[in-house]
Nucleic acid binder design. Structure first.
Lengths: 251, 251
DNA sequence: CGTACTCTTGACCATATTCAAGAGACGTGG
DNA sequence: CCACGTCTCTTGAATATGGTCAAGAGTACG
């Protein structure tokens, strides 16, 4: 669990943000883009396995994922870990702490990642000057809540195999929505330990559960990653319809 | 599961909102109060066991809890139910669906409740005219996320007795923050079935787990409700520090 | 070539579920 | 007033699901 050296550089101006090309995101006015560009403080690059935010630490920043993916998690004192949700390009990170000075969760990179960095102290300004962007942030928070609700239902009430099917379908849908892993359709890197810590299961039992899905030919597990072989069957097993594909905002 | 007849009446003007007296909430400017008053559409009263919002339905409204308490939940097709979170006075309900037309969860009243009703379609107006109130909504959404994060950690990684201890301490803290159940310090009405559906456990196992806490003299269970006997021991068992008591906004 | 990481499997054990039955409280209608 | 159904809590026994322990195989990397 090494903390990456925070490399900072303002490489991409918001007007040329690569996310603007994607269908998944809403269109922005020129004025909005200019404002966000001025609001943006720089970029942060971090590599696989490194921590961006740590529970209990004090960050004056908010982040938007520009590229790569990772996850948010919490830990109990004795080391038990629960992965709360995954973060993908366009996701906003750090909001959960608008209220506390101390972070209530940690964030770790799965792949190499780049973040846009914003200053927490200036966020109120955004609500005053660009109400629509303020509204967008609420939209994103509401969306995160929806995902957490579904995760809660999953961990609380679905069986091991249903949970696993749900998670893999969920990750696949979210990745597809932002065009991640399009080339080889393999979602990686992700270990079975990550899956276990997301599902609230032990590593061994997670392995046996994934094995059933492999034997089914519903998925294929490769070294540190997986491939969806039958997305419909996965969703059927999970009893889950999939994520909504409405155009969404981002910062 | 009967749907209450929606009684509507504008009984309380926001300037005399009883929640304003509480220490838990932030102070509002006169202008803000006037705006919210104009924004408020009426009140909705519902009684124990009745549904305010139903998953899959289509509500043009947002609500703030004025009095009483209840819970949000989701269900799987075969009837398995997961309680996602509890709602207390000052809590904002329905935001999770700023994006969808269809509700993604249901809300049910535990006690008799009264809600303030707002129109979903006019919420953007609030962001433009009263940015601080828009910011407050985001604040509330972030707070809800934090609670869901902790619930997820609990269900995913805590043992049955730790989960139970966490839930009871959580409910006690939240109720205390808004002055609910001050008279007799009994948190009610709540059945062990509710507790089970929150913890992701079966009713029988929940009963046996609560029994241990009773034998411990950590809590006392009465008919449809419980009493905290040793809050510190509860939090110690759960490995949970308690909710933060910062002044919070509401609508 | 050795070490670390990930996945895999089997055996045994712990935890939680299901099934079943009964007790006590409460409200309703005869 | 009592009989009845309903709701909530309780308990025991049998069963299933998932956890822990242990060991080994394959791969990557220094």
């Amino acid at each position: 669990m090494n903390v990456s050296p925070p490399k900072s550089a303002l490489n991409v101006s918001c007007e040329e943000c690569p996310l603007l090309c994607s269908d998944s995101f809403r269109a922005f006015s020129r004025e909005e883009l200019e404002f966000v560009s001025a609001f943006k403080r720089g970029e942060l690059a971090s590599s696989t396995g490194s921590s961006i935010l740590l529970e209990g630490s004090n960050s004056p920043h908010l982040y938007t994922v520009l590229s790569g993916w990772g996850f948010r998690y919490k830990m109990l004192e004795d080391g038990r870990r629960q992965i709360l949700n995954y973060i993908f390009p366009g996701d906003f990170v750090g909001l959960q702490n608008a209220l506390h000075t101390e972070m209530q969760h940690s964030v770790e990179a799965l792949s190499d990642m780049v973040f846009c960095v914003f200053e927490r102290s200036r966020i109120y300004e955004l609500y005053v000057k660009q109400p629509e962007l303020g509204f967008d942030i609420t939209w994103l928070a509401a969306r995160e809540e929806q995902m957490l609700d579904e995760h809660l239902l999953s961990i609380g009430r679905r069986t091991a195999i249903e949970r696993a099917a749900y998670l893999l379908a969920f990750l696949s849908d979210r990745a597809a929505a932002v065009g991640l892993f399009e080339k080889n359709s393999r979602i990686e890197p992700l270990t079975q330990q990550h899956v276990a810590d997301t599902l609230g299961l032990s590593l061994v039992h997670t392995n046996k559960t994934l094995r059933k899905l492999c034997d089914n030919d519903t998925i294929a597990w490769h070294d540190s990653g997986f491939e969806i072989r039958d997305a419909e069957k996965l969703k059927e097993i999970a009893g889950w319809p999939g994520v909504s594909g409405l155009a969404r905002p981002f910062l």
